[in-house]
Computed example of a mutant assay.
Amino acid sequence: MAKHCLLLCSLFLLATTAAYGGRLGGWQPISSSDPHVKAIGRFAVHTHNATLEFDSVLKAERQVVSGYKYRLVLAAVDGGEGRTKHYQAIVYEKGWNHKLLSFKPLLKSF
């Protein structure tokens, strides 16, 4: 019985690792045009600074944790300058709860 349990656990771990591209818990690219990803981008911009206006998600990655972490490269218009700038945001999501973990400007254009 113990051998069967060990075999099943090993197969599960192998299948799970393969499903995540061999990097269990690593960052995986996701679609930046997904409406849910765009909503998370809007949340990040608004939470960080109400004077920024969300424009788009340029790049998106997701990490499976006890929930999800999203690492997004965002374009947002600076209300004071009227210029579009790029930012990297990391948002934690668990159920309906969201938390902005980091938001920083990117120095080079994406």
Score class of each variant (00 low, 15 high):
residue 1 M to D: 08
residue 2 A to Q: 10
residue 2 A to C: 13
residue 3 K to C: 10
residue 4 H to S: 09
residue 5 C to M: 14
residue 7 L to E: 15
residue 8 L to A: 14
residue 9 C to T: 09
residue 10 S to D: 03
residue 11 L to P: 10
residue 13 L to R: 11
residue 22 G to Y: 04
residue 22 G to M: 09
residue 24 L to R: 06
residue 28 Q to W: 06
residue 28 Q to N: 12
residue 30 I to K: 06
residue 31 S to P: 03
residue 32 S to M: 05
residue 33 S to N: 14
residue 33 S to K: 08
residue 34 D to L: 11
residue 36 H to D: 08
residue 37 V to Y: 03
residue 37 V to H: 11
residue 38 K to S: 07
residue 38 K to E: 09
residue 39 A to H: 12
residue 39 A to P: 12
residue 39 A to R: 12
residue 43 F to G: 07
residue 43 F to T: 05
residue 44 A to V: 01
residue 46 H to D: 14
residue 46 H to M: 12
residue 48 H to L: 09
residue 48 H to A: 15
residue 49 N to Y: 07
residue 50 A to L: 12
residue 50 A to N: 14
residue 52 L to R: 06
residue 52 L to Q: 01
residue 53 E to L: 10
residue 56 S to C: 05
residue 56 S to P: 00
residue 56 S to W: 02
residue 57 V to Q: 01
residue 57 V to T: 00
residue 57 V to N: 01
residue 58 L to N: 07
residue 58 L to T: 15
residue 63 Q to F: 02
residue 63 Q to L: 02
residue 63 Q to Y: 03
residue 66 S to T: 10
residue 69 K to I: 02
residue 70 Y to V: 07
residue 71 R to I: 08
residue 72 L to G: 04
residue 76 A to F: 00
residue 76 A to P: 00
residue 77 V to Y: 05
residue 77 V to A: 08
residue 77 V to P: 08
residue 79 G to D: 04
residue 79 G to Y: 06
residue 79 G to H: 10
residue 80 G to Q: 03
residue 80 G to K: 08
residue 81 E to S: 14
residue 84 T to F: 07
residue 84 T to Y: 06
residue 85 K to R: 05
residue 85 K to Y: 01
residue 85 K to D: 04
residue 87 Y to T: 01
residue 88 Q to Y: 05
residue 88 Q to D: 05
residue 89 A to E: 01
residue 89 A to M: 02
residue 90 I to K: 06
residue 92 Y to M: 09
residue 93 E to G: 15
residue 93 E to N: 09
residue 94 K to C: 10
residue 94 K to W: 03
residue 96 W to P: 13
residue 97 N to M: 12
residue 97 N to Y: 12
residue 98 H to V: 02
residue 100 L to D: 04
residue 105 P to L: 15
residue 106 L to T: 08
residue 106 L to E: 13
residue 107 L to N: 08
residue 107 L to Q: 11
residue 108 K to L: 15
residue 108 K to Q: 15
